[in-house]
Simulated assay, not measured.
Amino acid sequence: MTEKTTRVAIVTGGSGGIGRAVAERLAKDGVAVVVHYSGNETRAQDTVKAIEAAGGQATAFGGDVADPDAMAALFRHATDTFGGVDVIAHTAGIMPLAPIAEMDLETFDRIQRTNVRGTFIISQLAARQVRAGGAIINFSTSMTRLQAPAYGPYAASKGAVEAMTLVLARELRGRDITVNTVAPGPTATPLFFEGKSEQVVEHIASLNPMERLGTPEDIAEVTAFVAGPGRWINGQVLYTNGGAA
């Protein structure tokens, strides 16, 4: 049993990309972090080692976000290891892309299972267990506003995430728990680069008024703010995209 710390966070999808940056940024603020992973334990352990090397506390725990038993075990692990749960940063999600006319239903269902059902399960557990003074942060996408072709099924799943998050903020009245959604724009992660040529990436970056892609650290900074000092931000969707939408 590790000695109880001031605050404890669960970061889903914490093995890489935005999730890893969020885990490391929260740890920088002195938060003990449970780094959740779905399939890549090695990368999750790398995140843990990086946090520990910087003087923080972290542990890794795996499981399917759409499996309620696995996620209940994740929350138990956080409580058993660090004493409770104060922050949820639910970054885990999948992003298969195809035009609506072409996407098969199996892929569509897989997107909704991970992104919608997974968010529901994490949000339900968080609503029951996050301590007063805590923060629940789900992740959407600026594509709900940019409305780019091929993003329809993915954006639809994230629209559902936003709706659930905004309702949950109202349902937790009186609990001193904030509930928000961070909605990144195009961000330089392996998930974003997959299947895109260098020319496409450069074009997307050029569309932003800041003339670059976002970085995982950009998103992590906003997440850490609403997880910590940003207590008056509640029931909001934070479009974190450098002005892209």
Rank of each mutant, 00 (worst) to 15 (best):
G228I: 15
G14H: 07
G134S: 08
A150K: 15
D46Q: 09
A27M: 07
R113S: 06
G230F: 09
M71K: 04
D109Y: 00
E198T: 14
S38K: 08
G214P: 10
T91E: 02
S142R: 09
A9P: 02
M210W: 07
A70W: 05
E198L: 15
A73T: 03
I136H: 05
A148V: 14
T189R: 08
Q112R: 02
L213H: 05
R128V: 12
E198Q: 15
Q57N: 14
A50R: 09
L238M: 11
R7L: 13
N241T: 15
L146C: 06
G174K: 13
K4T: 13
A160V: 00
M1K: 14
P96E: 06
P153A: 10
P96N: 00
Q112S: 03
T12R: 05
I121W: 11
A27V: 09
R131G: 03
G195E: 03
I219H: 07
G134T: 14
T178V: 13
R20G: 01
W232K: 13
D109A: 10
V8C: 12
A98F: 04
L213D: 08
G83E: 09
G16D: 11
E211D: 14
E171Q: 05
G84W: 04
V31D: 06
G159Y: 05
V31S: 06
V11L: 04
G159V: 06
E102I: 12
N40W: 03
S142F: 09
L74T: 10
